[in-house]
């Protein structure tokens, strides 16, 4: 990854200038041309290193969400993961090394909807979920600093 690529991502994962020519403004700040910026964004995008460029909405306003964990017996992981993934309300699902080994985020139009979904999950899997809604946010996904050893995939 060239140095400009990294500086560009590190700087603009936090905020893109709200002005008529944002990439020109980025270029001015980084000391390069607008073309340099657009070329690198396009390259990163082609290599799937860019998730998207655009507004990041505060989704807690669009409804309710919670973090859920299940303690799934080793032999049932594939089966339960497939059952969980089939829910539209599930948008992240990770397997983690712990007794509580399946972790996913539920989102829905209301807390009531989440309660119903949690009930369905319990009935379907026979497993009692841990329901861990956010109480206070100290830091909400503003990205994190990218080190110089970051790689661009080929």
């Amino acid at each position: 990854m060239d140095d400009l690529c990294l500086r560009m991502l590190d700087r603009f994962q936090h905020d893109l200038p709200i002005c008529a020519a944002p990439y020109q403004a980025m270029a001015d700040e980084l000391g390069c041309t607008e073309d340099d910026i657009l070329q690198r964004l396009t390259l990163l995008n082609q290599r799937k290193a860019l998730s998207r460029v655009g507004p990041v909405f505060e989704h807690s306003r669009a409804g309710a969400s919670t973090l859920v964990a299940l303690a799934v017996p080793e032999a049932r992981i594939e089966e339960v993961a497939a059952q969980i993934n089939a829910f539209d309300e599930v948008n992240h699902n990770y397997l983690r090394e712990h007794n509580w080994n399946l972790w996913f985020v539920l989102t829905g139009p209301s807390r009531e909807h989440l309660d119903q979904t949690l009930e369905k999950i319990e009935q379907l899997t026979g497993l009692t979920p841990l329901d861990l809604p956010m109480l206070t946010a100290y830091q909400i996904d503003l990205g994190f600093a990218l080190g110089k050893n970051s790689q661009v995939p080929t």
Binding site: I18, P55, V56
Partner: peptide, 30 residues
């Protein structure tokens, strides 16, 4: 365009938009 920029600014000021960003795929960056 001016109204669009003003809208984005208002939505960001009220917190409806957290940020406007180039969001990296950290996984693909190693």
């Amino acid at each position: 365009v001016d109204d669009t920029l003003a809208l984005l600014q208002r939505l960001q000021d009220t917190g409806a938009i957290r940020r406007i960003a180039a969001v990296p795929n950290h996984y693909r960056l190693g």
